[in-house]
Every structure is written in C-alpha cells, then in structure tokens.
Write a protein that binds this DNA or RNA. Sequence first.
DNA 1: ATCGTTACTGAACGCTTGTACAAAAAATAT
DNA 2: ATATTTTTTGTACAAGCGTTCAGTAACGAT
Lengths: 251, 251
Amino acid sequence: MGVVRALETEEHINEERGNAEQGAGASGRARRQERGEETRRKIMEAAEAEFARGSYHSVSLRDIAKTADVRLASIAYHFGTKEELWKAVFLRRAIEMNRERVALLTETARKAKGSVVPLRGVLRAMLQPGIRWLFDPGGRGLFIQVLIRSPLDQTSPMFDMFYRDARHIQRFIPYFKKALPELTEEDINWRMHFCIGAMHYTITDIKRLEYVSNGVCNTEDMEEMVDRVVTFCEAAFRAPPYEKQPPRPCT
Amino acid sequence: MGVVRALETEEHINEERGNAEQGAGASGRARRQERGEETRRKIMEAAEAEFARGSYHSVSLRDIAKTADVRLASIAYHFGTKEELWKAVFLRRAIEMNRERVALLTETARKAKGSVVPLRGVLRAMLQPGIRWLFDPGGRGLFIQVLIRSPLDQTSPMFDMFYRDARHIQRFIPYFKKALPELTEEDINWRMHFCIGAMHYTITDIKRLEYVSNGVCNTEDMEEMVDRVVTFCEAAFRAPPYEKQPPRPCT
DNA sequence: ATCGTTACTGAACGCTTGTACAAAAAATAT
DNA sequence: ATATTTTTTGTACAAGCGTTCAGTAACGAT
C-alpha cells in the first residue's frame, strides 16, 4: 500500500536511501557508508540483470550472489529477504521511469507556451523514455523489461504494482483531450492503452521483429524506433471516434 | 527444433495423440484409453490454470496435482518431466491459435472473391482470435495469457518458442502489401509488430485499463474490444510511409 | 588501547522441489 | 481363472531453495 503510493506521488521521488544525512559527518562517516554501499550496489546491479533474464521465481539468491561476486549472506544483511531485494530493485527504476515521463511531458508543455501541445509531442513524452532505456547499456536497458513484465506474473511479489503507473499515466489525458476534442474520454483511455501496448511489445519483443522480418527492419536506431511508434500511434489516435455497432459489411 | 517446426507447418495440426489408432480395436481398447486420457486431461487442464496464474518456475507439480485431484506420481507417469508437461500444454493451444488465425485469414480472402482483401478484414483476422480466446470461459481464456507471456521468460523451457508464430504471421504480409501498396515491406513489418503489441497488451493487461480509466471503459464487450483495436490499427496502418529524419519542429 | 558499531562470512537449518522406483491396483487378454 | 499389460500410488531421495545465526573482521569513536 505504502509502496504503491510512493509511485503515485512525486514528493517521494528524491527520497533515496542515505539522503537523510546532510553531509555533516564528513569524510570518515562517508567512507564507511561507501564501503557498504558498494556491496549494496553490486547486489542490486546483479539482481537487476538476473531478474531481467527470467522471472522472480526462476532466479535464486545464490545466482545473484555469484553474479555480484558477493557472499550469499550479504544479501540477507543488506536487504533482508528476497522479496525486499526485489522491491528495492524494482522501485528504484519504476520511480525513475515515472519521473522521466512526467518531466518530458512538462517540458513539452512548457515549450508550447500556453497553446495546445501538439499530439505528437504528448505521444513522444509517453512513449520515448521506455525505448530510450532499452538502448541504455547500463542496468536500465535490462530492467525496463522487468518493469514491463512484472505485473504479468501474479505470483511475483510486485503483482500489486499492477497499477504502478496508473495514476501517473492519467496525467496525459487532459493533453489528449485538448489535442483531439472530438474524442470521448473512453476513446482516449482505450487508445492510450493500445499505444502503451505497442511500445511495451516493442521493448520486450524486439528480437521477434528482427526474426519475423528476416532482418528487413533496422532495430538498432533508437530515433527511428521512436519515430515509427509515434507516427503509428499518432495516426491511430486521429481515427474517428468509436461508434457502437459500426456498419459491418458481412458478418 | 522439431517442436518449433510443428508450429510452422499446417500439416501437423490434426496430428494429436491417439489419432493413430484407426478405430480398429473397438470398444474394449477405447475404454481403456479413455481411463488414461481422463487423468491426462485433468492434469493438462490443471496445469493450464496454474501456469496461467504465474510463471513456469512459480508453479510446482504438487500444485498441479492438487488442482487436478491426481497423485503426484501420475504426472510423471503421463508426461515424464515437468518440462514435457509444459510443452504438451503449450503446444496444444499454440497450434490451435495459429490454425484459427490462418483459417480466418483464408476465409476473409475467399469472401473477397479475387479482389483486394480490405485492410480491416486482414487486421481482424490477425487480431480477433486472441481476443476471442480471452472471453472463452474454458482453458483457452486462461491460457492465451500464457501463450503471450511465455516468450518473455528466458528461463522458461519454451523460450525457443520465441519465434512460435513467426512464420505463420508472415502470411499476412502479402495482404497488407496489396491493401497498402505505398508502404515498404519494412513499414509493414514494423506496423504489424505494433498491432500485435496493442492486441497482446489488451489481452494481458486489460485489468489495468479498467483501473486507469476509473471504470470509464467497458471491457466486457468482446465485439467492442475487437472493433476498437481494429479501428486503431487500421488508422495507424494508413499513416504515411516512414521517412528517415522526418522534419521535427524543435529538438 | 579499548569499545562499539557496522560490514561481512561460513555453516547450518527446515523446507520444497523434480524425479525415481517398487509395489499395488485395475483392466484386458488368453 | 490366470496371465499380462496399463495405470495408479506411497514413499523416498538428492538437490536446491530462502533464511538464520554465531562468529569474525574492519572501522571510527572514545
């Protein structure tokens, strides 16, 4: 519950572990913390990579310890349980992602200087950060896939994060409304959903596109990927509003 | 390898276990097989439900045995290993799904009587079967989610099924080409990918839409859902072809 | 130099897992 | 009725799991 709230509010974003100390203790204290933080960082990094490869249950703490080059008991020392490790790894990135998306939206709106934010800009703010992470050589490139897949596993301890960016994604609705006044709120929600689906699938199943297309599609150009999905979604969003029982030819 | 091929060809579709017997042995033989088949069926059904709830590694054979009301050792007797059980469960539905999609495409093409198949019809053939399964009260309603998620877990024994419907999905390409001659093959592959993403996300994350939209979206009408996603994808497919470095206003 | 805190370690715990196997049971064949 | 084959069962096993804990080492504070 508290965990979910942390994702819905912006206030907690910068509230990271250790930020409480105000730089008072100076060097000695800092160096001691540094020693612990190094191990902690290695564990999180390894966990990020391991979890990205499989599911929560398919990864063992021993796997993670080996990858991190750390003794098994150190994980327990720093994180307590496997579940807490998972949550720590997950939350860090989830908060980061939400912050980036909202920041990009705000920036885009600022540039519009009061006039209507172009549809393409709103879509870019929604779809670009995830794809940019995919190309990140660091942990984010791995973890964006975990971020996307985890709500699919009902036995994962983060299944209640199902709604992890629910509230945050609602921020986009007013912008879509202004850009496309003829759409109902129902239309907008459905289409936002479809857009996110196209984006998520591109992130998690990009290898499949390479294979299906026999290498015809260039999947290594980030800007091209973003442009393609944005163009796709923009045209889709401009489809006429949904009408109940649309005239169908035969069946 | 052989398993993957089975999905790519249509010939093996009706080759189900036990079809080899030609009805020669008559009643006695049939009744004996029936006894074994009953247990086998119960196990597969339970496995389907359990696997749908989590991941391959989060489900134990003991869970499945309990759900199926069958002794643990019976699973080993009928399927050998956990992996073989998983493959049996998986393959049955995967083949079924591919067959349905291709059948629908063929039927749609037949109705067009030689003229160009309308874009909307091609998209319907591609997107409708999955959504129809979602509304199936039987095992398919559960398993469609497994079908979609499984390639995402690299530790699942079906990860090599990554490309499970790769070949099969290529059948749609010529139809898109005819309906939209101005698009390159690259454009078509990208957009097919996005369409499947929107559809998959709708199937696996439909609860999220309910939540995000605060219940504004009606997610219980199958025809509405299909129409919405098809309309979305149709408009998106009709977007102008991709151009490298499209003129962007600011950044 | 001593103390106390923090970080780390090795070994062990109890439990669950997938698998194996011999024996029983059931069904069919002779 | 007997023999044979198919199916089911209880039990056991080794391996792996997450977690615990007493003990050690490193460090800053006193």
